[in-house]
Design a protein around this nucleic acid. Sequence first.
RNA 1: GCCCAGAUGGUGGAAUCGGUAGACACGAGGGACUUAAAAUCCCUUGGCCAUUGCGGCCGUACGGGUUCGAGUCCCGUUCCGGGCACCA
Length: 946
Amino acid sequence: MREYDFRGIEAKWHARWVANKTYHVTEDETKQKFYVLNMFPYPSGAGLHVGHPLGYIASDIYARFKRQQGYNVLNPMGYDSYGLPAEQYAIQTGQHPEITTFRNIDRYREQLDKIGFSFDWDREVRTCDPGYYHWTQWAFQQMFRSYFCTSANKAMPIDSLIRHFETRGTEGITAASSEELSFTAAEWQAMSEEKKSRTLMNYRIAFLGETMVNWCPKLGTVLANDEVIDGVSERGGYPVEQKKMRQWCLRVSAYAQRLLDGLQTLEWSDSIKETQKNWIGRSEGTEVRIGVADSDVEFTIFTTRADTMFGVTFFVLAPESELVRQLTTAGQKAEVDKYLAYVKGRTERDRMIDHTVTGVFSGSYGINPITGDKCPIYISEYVLSGYGTGAIMAVPAHDSRDYAFARHFDLPIIPLIEGADVSEESYDAKEGTVMNSPMAGKTAFKGFSLNGLSVKEAIAATKKFVSENGLGRVKVNFRLRDAIFSRQRYWGEPFPVYYKHGIPCMIPEECLPVELPQVENFLPTESGEPPLGNAQIWAWDEVNRKIVDKALIDDKTIFPIELFTMPGFAGSSAYYLRYMDPSNDHALVDDRVAAYWQNVDLYVGGSEHATGHLIYSRFWNKFLFDLGVSKQEEPFHKLINQGMIQGRSNFVYRIKDTNTFVSLGLKDRYDTTPIHVDVNIVRNDILDVDAFKAWRPEYETAEFILEDGKYVCGWAVEKMSKSMFNVVNPDMIVERYGADTLRLYEMFLGPVEQSKPWDTNGIDGCHRFLKKFWQLFWDKEGNLPADATEPTADNMKTLHRLIKKVTADIEAFSYNTSISAFMVATNELTAQKCRSREVLMQMVTLLAPFAPHIAEELWEAMGGEGSVCDAQWPSFDEKFLVESSVQLGVQFNGKVRFSMLFPTDATPEEMVRLATEAPEAQKYLEGKQVVKTIAVPKRIVNIVVK
RNA sequence: GCCCAGAUGGUGGAAUCGGUAGACACGAGGGACUUAAAAUCCCUUGGCCAUUGCGGCCGUACGGGUUCGAGUCCCGUUCCGGGCACCA
């Protein structure tokens, strides 16, 4: 007998893998590639808890499996080390972010190394490394030099747009823009350099824009939409206000349709696709131009309910709209100003929570182009300036918000759908038959009528009528906004931009990367002054092409450099491309290398990135695809979202005002307070009383009321966090049970995609399995099985059933069921006293992706060639699986049928014959008439008799 | 409000195509070995009834339906989780 010495085995193989560079991969044209990727971690100060490696283990199993199937597998790892989390941690601990980040990375690496991953560490990337962010800056510059052509539906060089302006002005251009501009070639040529620069910003994919931003004073920076949740910052939960600021932005909205279309080609879960669909928010509708009575002014409204144009009784403008100024009459000015002041005083959060009706009449009237009716124009905060045109037509009968407004201001309500009762609430459903369009006795523009049509038909008819008669046009709107790309923070990529007399210019590509300067004071400020303002050596010398002291700034050759830095998502948007070619100094990725690895075949990470990273990197990749740098339109073909591991907290119950603790079963007899207790001093919910006394000084004198001599703790599922004392550390598990047990148990816990609480209690089962697996190989004298022993039929059946099951399960990411199958197979082979070397070698091969250390050890001991990582994945043979005997089970429920079990390979006809001829069946069939027989797969026949 | 995904023993979870519900594991109870503990092994473990008998009834959140047969499909309800939300 030999003991399973997991500590010795794991240390030995970890060292061996490092020495042999077992997991280093290179491009190999003779093999098919497979790219497995995990979302790289933020190296936070708390280190890894047991939940973090879940996704890494799942993908590592898949990567090892694919490798054994003969693929050339890329499985890299790195660190997302720029951005808010790293910086907040540094601020909280009062240290420079560079110091804390590097220390955190070392700690992560140390922890990761203990778990036996097949990462190719030679390809590690760090987003804060200049060699890495060189290419983040480079991509930004490419976006600056590009615009999005809507007819080609892709990014194009801005130079081609400039040439168009020079010859034809804006005539015939098809470009995504912030606003629609119109000028002639002559006007363009007459523009100053500054005006030209400003005009081009309207088209560039990376542009400076004066936009409303989410400003978070506490964090001292602006935030992207996905970083704001319920009106407060995602990180820290601080209030966020709307503020107009000049910011770098990325024209993500130009890619909205491609981002939406691409989803169809992806193997992602429905729920995450749905989340992205909602976030992109495509809405097909109609824009209609509205004239204003006694005025030259016109404005445009957007509606998805063109069919309701006959029910318009007023118009509404967003308070921030430019039109407010133009359409407010002198008589209403005081009222309107008062309202605008009120709106300004409200935060984003106020608006979200409080939906009371507010608004003010502008004094002007809009003219409904179809009915010719004059309707009052109101201003109200329920209309958003950022969506559509910032102006709407209000149809109170069929829109609940318009209804509430009409009721509040006592405006008319015209029902347009037969049978709809609008006396109490609006009828918002898009179904029914249209009426009152126009109302009886009235005529509409050009005799237009929708009466009698269904809502769907009416929408289509109105769209057609509006565009044919020049009243407006069909328009698609997206909820997806352009991404705000600058942060007023220190710990991020500097922009490779300097300002020449206020005009932003790119620092030449050859001079990249622009390295983050050292500063004494890196703290953010509430006023929004960027910390890079504290950098002394931070000016661009155009002639000598280098960064110099800002004291030297003059108006001829030395200019200030941008003080903003890039947001966290900048570095994480194209890291998967950089892993392909991580040390290339000449390109983000070599063209031939990119052509080999293509894109990520399997991406594993949390679903919380659905509207952040997973949108940004899809956008970023599409842009690089347009440039020809990325070889695939979509970066991540298949996505698996691992569930969160929650904590399982334990409680002790202290009797109020005492230092006496009562066991769970007896606590209801006393007035108690539950107190979190460190899960590491509790086993199977039984408290280690002595450890508890030693845990904290105040418990030294604690007394206990026990049940059956034990102190039983209560428990609850909560987030894993230090304050709940429920953090379980992977190092501790590895120390006690080994990495292979940890890997197995994390997968055994349940489906990878499901969130579940960590409960250390169950881990013994997996550890026991590995011990049994180990014992399977050694006889009493400590010898391994000899070559000559022939496998029995039972051995082969057990083995091949396992091969079939595990192969299918890994493909389906159903690791928990494969591990169950291993347990069953191991017990069967133990019972069979299997001594076949052939069978056992195959067992090792199958276990290798799950528990690589023990597999390597046994593989070597059995004389296997090379590393078990490269042992070919076995295929199963159906011939070993065929059932050899007829299993017969009869059910008779007092009703008129029964079922039986049959061999797998029997045809339906054979099954019916076997069933009717079986002696057990005869006693039920005797004297009865067969009404019908039903033979179905899975070996069951039902015979209905009467 | 709209959209998506769920609900199975004391616990985590199996049942992959509509075909023996509860695999596998934990926990619990009983037993063996042991001075004792640890480790290991064996038995029981959804509920109720019967247990000198080898069986019966009920059971997959709830109410209906389709089917020879439903955890699985359809309709309705409740509850939990996630996304979007004055987006016109």
